[in-house]
């Protein structure tokens, strides 16, 4: 079953300045990256999924429920959003309290919320920090707390807004592993992101937003195999794909290992992989 269905969605803040125009698409459980130029409508789109904004026309169905028929609080049981900057999300002075806040607010009992929070902290690798003040921890750790806070709510859909900003290599690797784990659990992970290399390594499906429309939608490898359209959208393929194209090969390779394997095989084609 589709977790999200979008039907002829239109949105503007002020009439005549359309932000999203006639978007129709479905999301299944595949992890999906949303990429696009600044101002392409990505954040607005996500706010519509959370019910923070309502469509001007058209419909958004979350787990079969029309966002027009449900409150933002009700939708919070279905869709979780991890803020771009953890400092904007975190407000409690104890890690465990912060992570229990979400589940407590959507009806989990104190015991359930505690168990959910501890499991979520375990998953992000911060189980030993539960008694600390989030602001005594590093930014990377606060990012993980902000993720755990949403994971603990057991929503079927989790949205990340620019999860790799201000993260170093180790932080990105941890976030990549968390996204893969959530996808393995059958959740839909949707991510707005500008980091093309991270998308190549992490997401099955990629959507390109441009001027309020979905310009491309497909498996990440296919989308990154269309450098001309990406360029029009102020994007670029991952660095490894850029090198692959520059030496005269068509299509996309997504990792350094794939690149080397393709060169060793002496072919211009990327190896077939899932």
């Amino acid at each position: 079953m589709n977790k999200i269905e979008i039907r002829k969605l239109r949105f503007h803040y002020s009439a005549g300045e359309e932000i999203l125009s006639d978007i129709s698409l479905d999301f299944d459980a595949r992890s999906t990256a949303i990429i696009g130029q600044n101002g392409a409508g990505k954040t607005t789109f996500v706010k519509l999924l959370k019910g923070l904004l309502q469509p001007v026309s058209g419909d958004v169905l979350i787990d079969g429920i029309n966002t027009r028929d449900m409150t933002v609080a009700g939708l919070a049981r279905h869709v979780g959003l991890v803020f771009q900057n953890p400092n904007d999300q975190i407000f409690k002075n104890k890690v465990l309290d912060e992570v229990m806040f979400g589940p407590s607010n959507i009806g989990q009992s104190p015991d359930e919320a505690r168990a959910s929070a501890l499991a979520a902290l375990q998953m992000v690798g911060l189980a030993d920090k539960q008694a600390e003040n989030p602001y005594d921890l590093s930014l990377s750790e606060r990012k993980l707390i902000s993720i755990a806070s949403i994971v603990a709510m057991h929503t079927d859909i989790i949205i990340f807004d620019e999860p790799t900003i201000a993260q170093d290599h180790a932080g990105k690797e941890r976030i990549k592993a968390i996204i893969r784990e959530l996808a393995k659990q059958g959740k839909l992970v949707l991510t707005i992101i500008h980091d093309m290399d991270f998308v190549a390594e992490t997401f099955e499906r990629t959507l390109v937003f441009a001027e309020g429309k979905v310009l491309l939608d497909g498996p990440t490898r296919e989308v990154y195999g269309l450098p001309g359209i990406l360029k029009q959208s102020h994007l670029e393929p991952p660095h490894i794909t850029q090198l692959y194209n520059r030496i005269g090969c068509q299509g996309a390779v997504l990792t350094v290992e794939e690149f080397i394997a393709a060169r060793r095989a002496g072919t211009g084609r990327p190896p077939v992989s899932a």
Partner: peptide, 13 residues
């Protein structure tokens, strides 16, 4: 200090 973190790829370039 990380001046292009929020920019799209061409904007950063």
């Amino acid at each position: 200090d990380e001046p292009t973190s929020q920019l799209d790829p061409q904007g950063a370039e």
